[in-house]
Design a protein around this nucleic acid. Structure first.
Lengths: 240, 240
DNA sequence: ATGAATATTGTCATTAAGACAATATTCATT
DNA sequence: AATGAATATTGTCTTAATGACAATATTCAT
């Protein structure tokens, strides 16, 4: 059965009759840890693609709005709700999968460490956070999708401060800088970065510091959502 | 028959067996004329949706790469090839069409007057260029798609000079300014606009002027594609 | 010669960017 | 208590970009 081959989410698969058999959803779920941008991958456990890594996905269900599908994937895979998700686009090369004609709608999601500290992959699924740079040789056209996600992400953080979705509620300036460096793929001048970041007024200094480090404790900041909403109207360009 | 209802392209419809029956492609085809941004619409000639206006579209064909589909729509509708096209996203609300579960992949295309001077709609189809502002009450969720296209377009011209796709090969500075004003939805200071546009070095002055006007003839410019490609690497922000 | 219509150009004050390195804290070690 | 290690934090100068302004120049038609 060709469809079994694509059974990326193994627990409690939907009945065949409930899904639109030629349409799937795949998600690039990003996280940021140890100064590395990571993506959540699943390993296929059976079928022709056994052992290969893939972006988590599902077939589109007949009775579900498309918008809900990525949240459904996230819910099943991580148990998380209320996650930042945006659509990337739809991929439909004729030969993109080696069985049948499956068109997939790609999404990306950003989740913060304090959320996924709940240990993804505690259940039976073979799931792992993988450094984006090391996520090569994915199944089907999933590398093409991931590459596209990275391009979009890089493009997006120039105009919207979505990077904050990847950080905990309180973070240090170094923390954000490392995040931007990881996303942009090059290092940034600390003085200029801080000047620009602080002048944007997106951050609010707290009175707390990060005491967990064995050197000068850095100040903790929070993200100012109101100011962010203002900036969406004004326009914004974070060129660095 | 529900599918007949969605038969947007009337001439030479594909056989049912050739299409993926739950997946369509819809296109926002933009043009710019008389300082107005226009979109190409088709009027449904039969079925429940008779008389209603819609974005042109088709069902996705089984044997065609997804990427080719919008070009197929453009080809059929206007006879044009090599048009600038980008995917907008995929729309899949459960109740987006009033029959069955159809998910649609939306694209937008930008075409320039010198191309569509060949009179779109010379054939039997009911097709018209409509000012975007006046394209209300479209069928299904097509207004939602068009609104989204406008948001994307506005966002896009801040980072990429795609507006040039809407202009003829030679154009005046006023011409571009009016285009930007139409896309952004507000007027711009001429001095500042010109300074910024010229300093970007995206334009090359020609030795020609537009003689067709009954007042001082404005200089004609061309678009510098090489410089454009450079800017894609450097990054760019056209905030006005 | 005049009026109509649009094209074209310049200044000044303020703000942002780019390039650059020294000092400050804190903890661990001796 | 002094030193070293590690990272946090801050400032200057020059140049470039922005925003807010209005006067002058051309051309054609009358």
């Amino acid at each position: 059965m060709p469809l079994d081959n694509y059974q990326e989410i193994l627990s409690d698969p939907p009945a065949k009759g409930r899904m639109i058999s030629n349409l799937s959803v795949d998600c690039c779920i990003f996280g940021f840890e140890n100064n590395d941008l990571k993506v959540l991958l699943v390993q296929h456990a059976s079928g022709r693609s056994q052992g290969q890594w893939a972006l988590p996905g599902e077939f589109v269900l007949k009775d579900r709005n498309l918008k809900e599908m990525p949240h459904h994937v996230l819910q099943r895979l991580t148990g998380l709700e209320n996650i930042f998700v945006e659509q990337l686009g739809t991929f439909g090369r004729l030969d993109r999968v080696d069985y049948g004609r499956i068109i997939t709608i790609a999404y990306y999601a950003l989740i913060s460490p304090q959320k996924y500290n709940l240990k993804v992959g505690a259940d039976a699924l073979d799931v792992a956070w993988v450094n984006v740079a090391e996520a090569t040789k994915l199944i089907y056209d999933h590398n093409e999708i991931l590459d596209y996600a990275m391009i979009k992400l890089r493009d997006r953080i120039k105009t919207y401060p979505i990077g904050f979705e990847l950080l905990p509620d309180k973070f240090t300036l170094t923390h954000i800088q490392k995040l931007y460096e990881a996303m942009l793929g090059h290092s940034l001048d600390t003085r200029n970065f801080r000047r620009k970041m602080l002048s944007s007024k997106l951050l609010q200094a707290t009175s707390e510091v990060d005491d967990s480090v064995p050197y000068r404790a850095p100040k903790l900041y929070t993200f100012d959502k109101e100011r962010y909403d203002e900036m969406l109207v004004e326009g914004y360009f974070f060129q660095l």
